[in-house]
Amino acid sequence: MNKESNMSVLLKGLLKENPVFVLILGTCPTLATTTTVIGALGMGLAATAVLICSNAVVSMCRKFIPDTVRIPCYIVIIAGFVTIVEMFMHAFLPEMYELLGVYLALITVNCIILGRAEMYAGKQPVGKSILDGIGMGLGFTIALLAMATIREVFGAGTFAGIPVPFIETHTIDILIKAPGGLMVYGMLIAAVNFITKGKAIKKKDFSCAGCPSAGNCHGGCASAEKEAE
């Protein structure tokens, strides 16, 4: 795994190992915050910031965190950065803070962050972990933006609050409600499967890799399978 170039570490998060559509991590915020493009962007960037910082610190500390208590250590590191991001947002972007509400605090239990700490940052040098954090964070943001664009444009007839002509008067209201989120997500995963011809999806069974506890059940199937390859 050490052989891969820095560029591929950065780029794999965007499509090949996109955390949302391929690794199926972080489903809760993906569904909950994608009703508006602005919300999705805020969520994506907040999670990216936490991911980069936590990846860096986890990687720095990987030599002296005992293996048996690593999960609680990771959670504390992540929760600390989430609190910092939360306070920053409260101070400088109060509207965004209101919009994201409880989901901001819930970045703590976002499986992408714990998953990357466990699968990647806990084993790799600092520089690579930061790149991985940037790549995965951007992949997450792009995926959220894709979902939010579909949902906001067709569901509310606006894009980032700006009305879209024609569609504005022919909206599909259900898309911005809960069922629409699940449906768009399902369709997009199917589309990614179709494009990658099922190659990407084979790697994981979502029963384990897709749960926030992937780290908790000691490595999770996803990392075990990757190690085996």
Binding site: A178, M183, G186, M187, A190, N193, F194, G198
Partner: peptide, 13 residues
């Protein structure tokens, strides 16, 4: 392409 997760999500919807 709908096998597995996608069809499950649509059912959940």
């Amino acid at each position: 392409p709908f096998k597995g997760l996608p069809v499950t999500l649509i059912a959940a919807s």
